[in-house]
């Protein structure tokens, strides 16, 4: 009798372990919640960079200087490339888009499209030259020329020994006057992580 009971409990325990090890649970979490799993670059790092960059770029002197120089005319910015020189795959678009969004939402800075999206726009405009009605056709040569270009770089330093590791990230964004090549703003965010296995 006792043996039978023990056997039942053992079978139940094994089944439970097997089922729990095979099942996968997914829970929605707040994107602002800090969850560090592997120690690699994650959404918290991206958010911290975005917060730092958006607050500093919109409150820096370059903006007031431009407005006073150009009689209140808002600056036009184009986003250039961000160079990832770190040891990890880091998608800079996640925080650059936040900066772009801040430009558009605050209406302090005008943003123009660049890169492949601009090519697509010009392709559409060219298509309209032969297919759209005259009243709706958009003309070439009327784009807004950018005053400044936003470029950036991501660097990292890794120091590891045995099961300990320190990873340091430095993200820089630079705003340069296209006409004069003068760098008018440099944003910086440093992140250091201590990982112990």
């Amino acid at each position: 009798m006792l043996f039978k009971k023990l056997l039942t409990i053992a079978v139940a325990a094994i089944t439970l372990t097997f089922v729990s090890s095979c099942s996968r649970t997914v829970t929605r979490v707040d994107p602002t919640e800090q969850i560090d799993i592997s120690g690699n670059w994650n959404n918290t790092d991206s958010r911290q960079v975005a917060e730092e960059m958006t607050t500093t770029i919109l409150n820096a002197h370059w903006l007031t200087d431009h407005l006073s120089e150009k009689a209140g005319k808002k600056p036009v910015v184009i986003v250039g490339f961000v160079q990832n020189k770190s040891h990890e795959h880091i998608e800079a678009e996640t925080f650059v888009k936040d900066v772009e969004r801040a430009f558009v939402q605050t209406e302090k800075v005008r943003l123009v499209q660049g890169g492949k999206k601009r090519e697509e726009l010009r392709g559409e405009k060219a298509d309209q030259q032969t297919n759209s009605s005259i009243s709706t056709m958009k003309k070439f040569g009327l784009e807004n020329g950018a005053d400044y270009i936003l470029q950036g770089s991501i660097n990292s330093i890794v120091d590891a020994l045995n099961k300990k590791k320190v990873v340091y990230y430095q993200v820089n964004l630079e705003l340069t006057n296209i006409e004069t090549n003068e760098v008018v703003w440099v944003g910086e965010k440093k992140i250091a992580k201590y990982i112990k296995n």
């Binding site: 090519e119 697509e120 010009r122 392709g123 559409e124 060219a126 298509d127 030259q129 032969t130 070439f140």
Partner: peptide
């Protein structure tokens, strides 16, 4: 320039 490549871009 863009009239020639409009199809591929769109």
């Amino acid at each position: 320039k863009y009239l020639k490549i409009a199809d591929s871009l769109t």
